[in-house]
């Protein structure tokens, strides 16, 4: 037994890589879907807040990510946009990251097509603008000064849904889908704390732990953290077999494999230490 534990402790890391790969590939190949119960979590808080928005409200969605974090953030974007459209809320999209503008366009146009929403009447995409938080401060006084045209160079004055929008305070909610900096922290600092606009967030799992502090202080109304947050929102909105929900099965199986190896590693370490071989 001791020999087996010792051998497991010295296992070639490439074997672990193969097992993790299998733990991900097999559930995807068999289209395994696990139940995803949503409790009293920050994702439900964000859902409830969006659900309570009155019809015709304006919501700013900032797509602050790029393709490297698409597996986590794109399902969130699609589920959020779908929910906002279902509530007949007007969506103004923009991006603090260059490639976020086109990813946001993909999410909004695909959901708009499926629900019959019209561009410039129900949604529009202002595109990317550099400057991060300095630019957000400028949005607080005049959005049209920062974005004289939308992403496709249509002038602000020719977009009907923007007639009643002047500055950040015109929005009932700002949601940042954030992969880092500039992103949600800039929105909380400038739009939330300075201009008093409610802020919601979707973020990568890596950044989620640091953002919980903003929930506890009510600086954010809710948060979707990583693939689990995206799966929660898909479940709450009622998307059947969404990309994030499908991703949670390989996620769970791979986590079990990792937990198993953490236990094996610890048992091997303590057994070796008992023998005086490790410190």
């Amino acid at each position: 037994m001791a020999d087996i534990i010792e051998k497991l402790g010295k296992l070639d890391r490439r074997i672990i890589f193969v097992l993790i790969a299998l733990a991900v590939i097999i559930p995807i190949s068999f289209d395994l879907i696990l139940p995803n119960p949503v409790g009293a979590e920050p994702s439900r808080d964000l859902y409830d807040y969006v659900d309570a928005l009155p019809e015709g409200s304006n919501v700013l969605v900032s797509f602050d990510y790029d393709p490297s974090t698409m597996p986590e953030l794109q399902p969130m974007a699609e589920a959020l946009v779908l929910h906002l459209f279902m509530k007949n809320v007007n969506i103004v999209g923009m991006a603090l990251w260059p490639q976020g503008a086109s990813l946001g366009q993909d999410a909004m146009s695909s959901m708009a097509d499926s629900l019959g929403k019209a561009q410039y009447e129900d949604w529009c995409n202002l595109g990317y603008k550099t400057g991060g938080q300095i630019m957000i401060v400028r949005l607080g006084s005049s959005i049209s000064a920062v974005f004289p045209t939308d992403m496709d160079n249509v002038p602000w004055s020719e977009i009907p849904m923007l007639r009643n929008i002047t500055a950040l305070e015109s929005f009932s909610l700002i949601i940042s889908l954030s992969a880092g900096d500039p992103g949600i922290i800039a929105w909380v600092m400038m739009a939330g704390d300075r201009f008093g606009v409610p802020i919601g967030c979707g973020c990568t799992a890596v950044s989620a732990p640091t953002l919980y502090t903003y929930l506890q202080t009510n600086q954010m109304v809710g948060m979707l953290g990583g693939l689990k947050g995206a799966a929660d929102y898909e479940t709450l909105v009622g998307i059947k077999g969404g990309q994030a929900v499908r991703g949670m099965a390989p996620q769970s199986v791979a986590h079990l494999v990792i937990i198993l190896f953490i236990i094996i590693g610890n048992v091997a370490y303590f057994s070796q230490r008992k023998k005086g071989g490790a410190r």
């Binding site: 597996p71 986590e72 799992a205 890596v206 989620a208 689990k228 996620q251």
Partner: peptide
């Protein structure tokens, strides 16, 4: 959370 993020990219 970091493991979840990295696995999401692998998925």
């Amino acid at each position: 959370y970091t493991i979840m993020a990295r696995l999401s990219l692998l998925i």
